[in-house]
Structure formats: C-alpha cells, structure tokens
Amino acid sequence: TTVHIGNVTYHFDNPEEAVKWAKEMAEKLGLRIEIHGDTIRVE
C-alpha cells in the first residue's frame, strides 16, 4: 500500500496501518485523503 503526500511516497506492508497513518497526517495538515485501491492520496 502506498501513501502519497505531495511529491513524497510512503510504502506500508499493512493497508490498515497505511489508512490510519494517512488519516492522522491529513488531520495534522488540514487535508483530506482519497483511497484508490491500494493507493492513498493526502491532498
């Protein structure tokens, strides 16, 4: 599972961890997340 924040990509072996981490980052940055299969974007 990959999480994209701007130009930076993070890789997670556990999809649930990826979603949890992306949600925390989105809250901190005042952004929202979009999930497309195994790709998560924070925008």
Rank of each mutant, 00 (worst) to 15 (best):
H36E: 12
I5W: 07
N7P: 08
L31C: 13
V3Q: 00
G37D: 05
V42P: 02
T1M: 15
I35W: 09
I33K: 00
G30Q: 08
I40E: 02
A18T: 01
R32G: 13
W21I: 02
I33A: 05
I35D: 03
W21L: 02
K23M: 13
N14K: 07
N7W: 10
I33N: 01
P15L: 15
G6F: 12
Y10I: 14
N14L: 07
D13I: 08
A18D: 00
L29D: 05
A26C: 06
L29Y: 14
T1K: 07
R41S: 08
Y10F: 13
E24N: 08
E34I: 15
A18Y: 02
N14F: 06
K20P: 01
E24W: 15
K23Y: 11
I5L: 10
R32V: 15
E34F: 14
R32D: 12
H36I: 14
R41L: 13
H4F: 11
K20Q: 12
R41G: 03
R32I: 15
R41K: 10
G30N: 11
M25D: 00
V19L: 15
Y10T: 04
T1F: 12
K28V: 07
A26T: 03
V42R: 02
L31I: 06
K28G: 06
K23W: 09
I5N: 01
L29W: 06
H4P: 01
R41D: 04
E24I: 11
N14Y: 05
G30C: 09
I33M: 12
E34Q: 13
T2I: 11
Y10S: 03
I35V: 10
A26K: 03
K28H: 10
V3Y: 00
K20G: 04
H11D: 04
E43T: 15
E17L: 11
W21N: 01
W21F: 14
L31A: 15
V42D: 02
T2P: 03
I33P: 02
D38E: 08
W21K: 02
H4Q: 13
A22R: 00
M25Q: 09
W21A: 02
G6Y: 08
W21V: 02
R32F: 13
N14C: 06
G37W: 04
E34M: 12
P15V: 13
V8Y: 14
E27R: 08
G6I: 05
T9I: 15
T1H: 06
G37K: 06
T1L: 08
V19A: 08
R32Y: 11
E16G: 07
Y10Q: 04
V8E: 12
K28P: 03
E24Y: 15
H4Y: 13
E27W: 04
K20S: 08
K23Q: 13
E43A: 14
A22E: 00
R41Y: 15
A26P: 00
I5H: 04
E16D: 12
H4M: 13
D13Y: 07
G30S: 03
E17Y: 08
P15N: 11
G6R: 06
G37R: 05
V8D: 11
